[in-house]
Design a protein around this nucleic acid. Structure first.
Lengths: 350, 350
DNA sequence: AAATTTTAGCCAAACGATTTAGCCAACTCT
DNA sequence: AGAGTTGGCTAAATCGTTTGGCTAAAATTT
């Protein structure tokens, strides 16, 4: 018991194979143009395999200056309905990272203040080699903090053309969703959104406006309902209730920037005696897994978060290794999922 | 541009303060107060602050043998509805870890095979100092792999009394939920569960049986519906549909081991023409955030995943540091949340 | 005053890998 | 045969900390 079988070191492998540690490293890393004879290589490989040798990460880290770890800077929201997105994100990041033997650590923050502090300390302690950021804002303070000091990739659009970003085609997505509502005959379409300092909000507004204008309809700022803070059912509820109270006549349709907001809209609508989809058509975003199961099932724009983040992570890894990163900005298409909440399935066909 | 301002090292601090690196380290780690004069200490602290010095993690790691990183071994399920639990888990782990300046990395796996491989490599590379495991099974192969080689804490019950565990009081929870259904007059209560090799399934079965027996009802194995694999809407759907097809007469109530399974039950019921809650009462587990929003809203047993994992992480940190871990097994109570799906709110009061 | 203890701080050796420079045969070429 | 090449390997430096041992000087005791 307590057999203190310490982890195998490169020295033991060297001894077992009857060579120097340099040779072992050479064989294992292959980089070095220091050639090793086939027979020696075999012996080393065999010894390493037999002893179950794996280089110790922290030693490697110190020597090479790389921790082989990526940071995922994600918000820890109180509304756990937001979790699917981050779950998918983690999946995508891990998928890309795992392939190359990298680790992913979660830099989870409760507010932007804390996020900056976490990034700063990651920077100072060199605990990660690069970070993935979500949901950029105007004058995002994270960028100047990180720029030139640590590689990073942003999931979302950001104005700085130097920054590598991966994003959904939000303009197109919002445009298609709005057009869908227009085709169903709606003329007063509200837009429930997070504050416009978020690039995503700007882009989706853009798509919404484009669809309206192409249909020859005026854009009416009175139909915008902004949330106080971020996403979440509560936020959507408040924003839409505020809108309903403000307007003489309620809109006949709503485009919500997110399924959680849409859920809040549903609640506010119900409280106001509006039936969905009969009195009010609702479209969300993200195709969160609950969207198919709420009442009525939500029409929504599906985004491919896992893919998005997988690409972003891949780009980040290239960036870190100094490999060329193909396009500086990548757009991933989205997909409209039509369910009952928009009224397009008027004849119930279950 | 590209100002290669390299990170501050302890040597620079030492020079700036006019002392040796040993003294700086001594001051910063503060083990031995008598070793350095108050004035010197002040100078060192001042220099460190001014230069913004933070010890480099990988160097610390190599020297001390600690990476100051915890691993969270979580499944990457295809059904993203399972994400809330893990989101909460991550929150809890981060909360406990952050307080002490530790990092959390996600060891995400697709199947048990891969989980073992990940743990093995974490072990060999010493990339984490300890791991948190979820959902233990009979003869769990993770335990013998880790035991004696790396500290770990299990979230869930496990038979080995040596292992430190934190768990919900599943027996009690299932018992209370079942009793609730019994009080509503139900006599044929089905139990939808994951395979019984999972300790959680065993415990909840136990609570279910206890409630039945205390009510003087026979336990009927025909009312058990086991899933093929793990949790998820699809799994619940299949399991319950299988049960319905097998029985002459459907049960009047279902206790599902998880909200995702309950959602599957809802779908199967609907397909079979059973109305919930009128023909069938349904109770789930976890109080996943969507439970309040599905149709009908799910009665469910709330578990406090964040708290659970926060405790577990705290215990793990103690374990790693060799501090005493108070109780070897901790039980966190649960809470029954009554909504519409069980029929207790028969008079619709919206 | 000498001997002892305490205080304050430095030296140098790790930790476990990677990498650079260099050594020694053996081989090639004129 | 001597000079230059090359292949195959090793010794040693290095990454940035922490820490046990050591040494002077100062304080205390005898």
């Amino acid at each position: 018991m307590g057999r203190k079988r310490t982890v195998v070191t490169i020295r033991e492998v060297a001894k077992a194979a009857g060579v120097s540690v340099a040779t072992v490293s050479s064989v294992l890393n292959g980089q070095n143009h220091t050639r090793v004879a086939a027979e020696t290589r075999r012996r080393v490989l065999e010894a390493a395999r037999r002893l179950g040798y794996r280089p110790k990460r922290s030693a490697q880290a110190l020597r090479t200056g790389l921790t082989y770890t990526l940071g995922l800077s994600v918000p820890l929201c109180p509304d756990s309905l937001l979790s699917p997105f981050f779950y998918e994100a983690v999946k995508g990041a891990l998928k890309a990272a795992k392939q190359r033997g990298w680790l992913v650590t979660i830099l989870g923050f409760r507010d932007r203040q804390e996020e900056l502090a976490l990034l700063r300390s990651a920077l100072e302690q060199r605990s990660v080699d690069g970070v993935l950021l979500f949901d950029p804002q105007d004058d995002d303070p994270r960028l100047p903090l990180l720029k030139g000091r640590m590689p990073f990739v942003v999931v979302g659009r950001c104005s700085d053309p130097e920054v590598i970003t991966v994003d959904n085609d939000n303009v197109q997505a919002a445009k298609l969703a709005t057009q869908h509502l227009l085709q169903l005959g709606h003329r007063r379409i509200a837009f429930v959104h997070v504050p416009f300092r978020f690039a995503t909000a700007q882009d989706r507004l853009m798509g919404y406006r484009m669809a309206l204008e192409e249909a020859g309809l005026p854009f009416d700022a009175n139909l915008l309902a902004g949330t106080e803070g971020y996403y979440g059912v509560e936020a959507g509820y408040r924003a839409f209730l505020g809108l309903l109270n403000r307007l003489r006549k309620p809109p006949t349709a709503v485009l919500a920037m997110d399924d959680t907001l849409a859920l809040g809209v549903l609640q506010a609508a119900q409280q106001h005696g509006l039936r969905v989809p009969d009195d009010l058509a609702v479209v969300g975003f993200n195709d969160s897994p609950f969207a198919a199961h709420c009442e009525p099932p939500l029409t929504t724009v599906r985004i491919f978060a896992e893919t998005l983040v997988e690409y972003a992570t891949d780009a980040l890894l290239r960036l870190i290794r100094g490999e060329p990163v193909a396009p500086k900005r990548m757009l991933v298409p989205t997909q409209l999922i039509v369910r009952a909440s928009c009224g397009a399935m008027s004849r119930k066909n279950n």
